[in-house]
Structure formats: C-alpha cells, structure tokens
C-alpha cells in the first residue's frame, strides 16, 4: 500500500511538469486564436471564432 502510493506519487510528480506545460500551451493557443482582440488576429480568425462560439466582438 505504502509502496504503491509512493509509486503513484512519483508518477504524478514526474508527469506534473509536462502536463502543466501542455495546459499552458493549449490555453495560450485558445486565447490567441479565440480571444485576443488585435484587429489583424480578429479579422483572420473571424469565421472560426463565430463557428466555435467564442465571444467575438
């Protein structure tokens, strides 16, 4: 029990960094493509924003 708990904790702490990085990268992509309000980005992403239901303008 103690060993398997330790193993689990080790697996989780090893995975924590990569998981966090994926969350940050994924959220950033979602923000830039879906929410950032620069005019050029807005125009380029316009149709996708409407189609995906992101609040557009």
């Amino acid at each position: 029990m103690t060993i398997s708990t330790t193993a689990k904790t080790t697996a989780l702490s090893k995975a924590f960094g990569p998981i966090l990085m994926m969350v940050v990268l994924g959220s950033s992509l979602m923000f830039v493509a879906g929410h950032a309000q620069s005019a050029a980005l807005h125009d380029a992403a316009h149709d996708v924003r409407h189609a995906t239901g992101f609040p557009c303008h």
Partner: peptide, 27 residues
C-alpha cells in the same frame, strides 16, 4: 485562414485533452 485557425484551435483543444490523459494515466 479559417482552415488555419481551425487547426490552431483544435491543436489547443488537443493539448488540454492530452494533459488530461496524462493526469489520468499518472493516477
């Protein structure tokens, strides 16, 4: 541009999803 941004948005979605897979597997 619509194709490009759909790909970008879904790669973002996929990153969040796979972060979830990683967390589930680690537990």
């Amino acid at each position: 541009l619509t194709v490009m941004f759909d790909v970008l948005v879904y790669v973002g979605f996929a990153m969040l999803l796979i972060a979830g897979f990683g967390a589930a597997e680690a537990t």
